[in-house]
Design a binder for these strands. Sequence first.
DNA 1: CAGTGGTCTAGACCACACT
DNA 2: GTGTGGTCTAGACCACTGC
Lengths: 266, 266
Amino acid sequence: MSSFNSTGRVTPSVGATVNRADAIDAPAFSPLYQQIKQVLLASLQAGEWRPLQAIPSEIELAKRYGVSQGTVRKAIDELAAENLLVRRQGKGTFVASHDERQVQYRFLRLRPDTGTLSSQGRATRNILHCKRLRAPADMARLLGLNAGDGLLHIRRTLAMAGTPTVLEDIWLSAGKFRGLNAANLQIYEGAMYSLFEKQYGVHMVRAEEELRAVLPTEEQAELLDVTPQTPLLQVERISFSYNDQPVEVRRALNRTDKHHYHNTLG
Amino acid sequence: MSSFNSTGRVTPSVGATVNRADAIDAPAFSPLYQQIKQVLLASLQAGEWRPLQAIPSEIELAKRYGVSQGTVRKAIDELAAENLLVRRQGKGTFVASHDERQVQYRFLRLRPDTGTLSSQGRATRNILHCKRLRAPADMARLLGLNAGDGLLHIRRTLAMAGTPTVLEDIWLSAGKFRGLNAANLQIYEGAMYSLFEKQYGVHMVRAEEELRAVLPTEEQAELLDVTPQTPLLQVERISFSYNDQPVEVRRALNRTDKHHYHNTLG
DNA sequence: CAGTGGTCTAGACCACACT
DNA sequence: GTGTGGTCTAGACCACTGC
């Protein structure tokens, strides 16, 4: 217990990281709370605390790492701001999950032009297929795999109020999702990311999207019940798990005649 | 100096807000730092401190409001997180501005498919017109005006690497932007929001966007040098100033053959 | 060097949820 | 009541900027 931190004043018991001086290049000063944050992140990655579970209390963590409660607090604050943890006053701090009513569709930006999400009822999902294949070079690169590695390709449609609205192609590393098949997907009640989390321990933390306006192929047009001349909103997404590890590639074709993609710029 | 805060322990000199008890309905507890935040916000709204200027130091503000530095700090932290203020260690805390190289295009999400923004050079702007008209009902509603109030309608194109890529229609309350005309716009070097800020004291803080895939009219197609069968990405934006006041409505039609709209989901 | 934001501590007390 | 997160303070010291 004790070591590291540079400044010579406090020497808490968090791993070992020499801070300033000595090193030839950039001193790369890292405050204590950042180091605590990394330790907490490691525990999350390692699955030490699972989604929906409470992590130890701030006081407990402060004792464990030999720092003050305020320092632990600041580390947790940042993790909460990044949606990795959820604080609940009086109850504790919990590992974020896609399996909570409130954040169930955290990554869903498609909204009906009129009315609310709930007023339309839930989307009707239809799994068209779930096939296993060998990863082509481009997909392997995006997912951090080797070309030829096992890949799952899921295709599904989502119908809103009876109208087919979204056609999604989803690619996943087969290694991480053993046993996933069309039947699993069709049966599961709830968001797909909730399933990934519960059944495969894969928690999506962040995603990057690229949007384009495109025309559908004949096949795509048919599945969405539109003509091939109908402009569609294509959303390509890469989703990342804890350590910025790419886990999923998804390409959605969205009809935007009754819906739109909503975004807030801060 | 002194009054308010409920808890009976500290009684700093921030306005006057009774917190808990007494009130019939919800006590609506509001922590001190939130009240400080509101005071700072009011100063920003009132233009007491202008963009790029430094606000008083934390210690100074703490003295002024009769609270501890940590409390002021937390208020500023939130305003910085909302991009209203920018902290610079060793120098001070500054009012955010769209006229900084680093954040010049804070609201721009269109990116070239290959290369970086800068590698393509700046976009070539072309103001097609800047007309004054009377606000129709729908636009008045969006901008918080009365139907028939003065409205400015700007139309411009943006060309990237010689290719016309964006066609924008912009609507502004004429009252807030007196004297704005095509010549002003054409001449000004820099982002339009920078102009608004410098010349009209209007600072955009937040925006909401709705995206759809559409087909252009004949006229729009011609301006973007595409066929009327080309799918385009339509982005409708409402921009807000300090107190959530709508200030601008903008509809952009984007070619997405060489560019895409980028978004990050957290 | 002085001044600013940034970190860290230790302790008191409040608000909230459970039991 | 007990335990949790949330607020607030006072003070020390560090890191960065600029005179």
